[in-house]
Design a protein around this nucleic acid. Structure first.
Lengths: 185, 185
DNA sequence: GTCTATATTGTGATAGAC
DNA sequence: GTCTATCACAATATAGAC
């Protein structure tokens, strides 16, 4: 509480917004909700941010750019599947607090994703699947690629939900092993 | 088009709403959007449904009840993991058109889920994980259970996205095999 | 069953004082 | 930096004619 008050107001707004957006969704959260938890009025928010969308953008711009870089890197170098999956586990763990913001209100994110990602979310997922499935993949290999990607995304979040916020090394190994098993023929 | 016009107006509204909700999210879709695609006015919709929430409820009530029954069944009988995972693949395939409605605007679904599910979504997921992880599961076994569940959810949707709408038997086998591999020690 | 017109409310955003 | 006051608009919903 004391620590929270020592932060700049801007940072406190972002922290509150992150929690509210994750719980109620971006559309379901009002500026008034954030202002009330901050202990001020809606007008005060507009001194720190130009709009509600600006708050969302401030939260997600950097992580989305990082996600974009990760994809470019994946597409360029031909990474082994294990390295690629490990990279996604680590990325998910690092951005764990922001993933629920996107998941809670996917459709409201559309505009932001179009602006902040180098390619459409669908194309980016397709790039990952292609990298995991290998050249000239069979239909079965493509399905296994989807399976492995699903594992790194969801099992990582599940492991983090019952931990102190850091991903323990044994958990990371277990997730990676499970993903590689799902990918194997 | 001719076939669409032969349906009752109520059914046409539901079909349009399903598409719009899946694309723009429940919050992001207005009654006016639906009315425009229907070729009428918003007032006309209120002859067929009592509210916007009533449209959502009419779409999802039955599938959510079915999901609830599936969980009860899972918790009661001690199903083998393979049977349980297969049941979830089939359930996902059967309700494929409605899953995007929920996914697009998760937080807006909260009220409906509370009303239409026997337990909270979190508890229901926990029941599935418990059934997959077995009695007195290690942390690793719990992670593998999450991994297997992620596979049946996401790989099934991925397979359906590139098919005629039905889940082909070889695809179903491939998904089940990948899930069981992710679950295996 | 569908229309026009309108009531009502919620919410993002701004003006201007302090 | 924050306040009071208020605007503008969009969206759900209703009344009553046809």
């Amino acid at each position: 509480m004391a620590a929270e008050r020592r932060q700049g107001t801007r940072e406190r707004i972002l922290a509150i917004a992150r929690e509210e957006f994750a719980q109620r969704g971006y559309s379901g959260t009002t500026i008034a909700d954030i202002a009330r938890r901050l202990g001020t009025t809606t007008a005060a928010l507009y001194y720190h941010f130009t709009s509600k969308a600006d708050i969302l953008d401030s939260l997600l711009a950097e992580p989305l750019a990082a996600y974009g870089r990760l994809i470019e890197q994946t597409a360029a170098a031909s990474m082994p599947a294990a390295a690629l999956l490990a990279a996604y586990i680590d990325f998910t763990a690092e951005t764990r607090e922001l993933i629920p913001v996107i998941a809670a209100d996917q459709s409201a994110m559309r505009a932001l994703l179009d602006e902040r990602l180098p390619r459409s979310p669908e194309e980016m997922t397709a790039a990952i699947i292609a990298a995991l499935a290998g050249p000239q993949p069979s239909r079965a290999a493509t399905i296994r690629a989807h399976a492995a990607f699903a594992v790194v995304k969801e099992a990582t979040l599940a492991a983090l939900a019952t931990s102190d916020g850091r991903l323990a090394a044994p958990d990371r190994d277990e997730i990676l092993t499970a993903a590689l098993r799902a990918l194997s023929e």
